[in-house]
């Protein structure tokens, strides 16, 4: 199995619900707590497995805002695991999930240095590295109803922009979506073979933008309109 996520950049609205749901689930999960420092202070900071950035694509008027959630890509060739000296970082053979054994980590930061995606964050209180677990403590929990055995971020996404599944199965939803919508990997040139894919925004017709009329009468009307409005 090659478990991973698909993020639909077309429908993501950047609401940060995935990040909050992730924090809520995982802070009491196997790698919890997700320590916060100065949560009510001037510069609140803390451990998050999921961060959302907002980008502007293209130039005006052909521009677009894209919300960009990022968590661990669960790379097939995970450099964070290669560089780990203690064996705390490991990649599960059965499903490809990359995890940190909290009991073995010595907090040297080298895995975070090796990760291009910023997926790993050091917990300064516990002194160990923490990262997305793909909700390994959810997706195999037989006490949960079957349709809830998904990562918390996928479950909560109100825009249905996140999908979870097995990329090794060509008929799974994630494989089909990646194939049909042209799912992309991030920074493939580094060769870490990230598993998660990002579906590009669909092409939509441009909304017509206001242009100044060239007709002299229209120009005068335009000028009067602006004058009256003021």
């Amino acid at each position: 199995m090659k478990l991973g996520l698909v993020v639909d950049l077309d429908t993501c609205v950047g609401c940060n619900a995935c990040a909050v749901a992730c924090k809520q689930w995982n802070t009491s999960g196997t790698t919890g707590p997700l320590t916060d420092l100065e949560p009510y202070g001037k510069d609140p900071t803390g451990v998050w497995f999921n961060r959302i950035r907002n980008y502007e694509l293209g130039d005006y008027p052909e521009n677009k805002t894209v919300h960009f959630p990022m968590s661990c890509m669960h790379c097939e060739d995970a450099a964070c695991v290669t560089v780990c000296p203690t064996g705390a970082s490991y990649k599960r053979e059965e499903d490809g999930i990359v995890l940190v054994d909290q009991d073995k980590c010595m907090g040297c930061n080298l895995c975070a240095w090796a990760c291009p995606y910023g997926a790993r964050e050091l917990d300064p209180e516990e002194g160990v590295m923490k990262k997305c677990t793909l909700c390994v403590d959810r997706i195999y929990d037989e006490a949960l109803p079957e349709d809830e055995r998904q990562p918390a971020c996928v479950m909560t996404c109100p825009a249905h922009a996140r999908f979870f599944g097995d990329f090794d199965d060509p008929n799974s939803e994630v494989s089909r979506l990646s194939r049909e919508r042209g799912g992309e990997h991030l920074m493939p040139e580094l060769g870490y073979k990230p598993v998660n894919t990002y579906l590009p925004p669909r092409n939509k017709t441009n909304i017509p933008t206001y242009k100044n009329e060239t007709n002299p009468i229209e120009k005068v009307k335009d000028w009067v309109n602006r004058l009256v409005a003021r």
């Binding site: 940060n16 609140p44 961060r51 980008y55 293209g58 240095w113 040139e189 590009p200």
Partner: peptide, 27 residues
Amino acid sequence: TATSFTSRTVRLLDVGHTAGTFLTDEF
């Protein structure tokens, strides 16, 4: 290449956090 949009200009609008993070402190 970091965002997969290789044929358009990409600009960061908002980084998503108001204070520093482990990532901004370290890198």
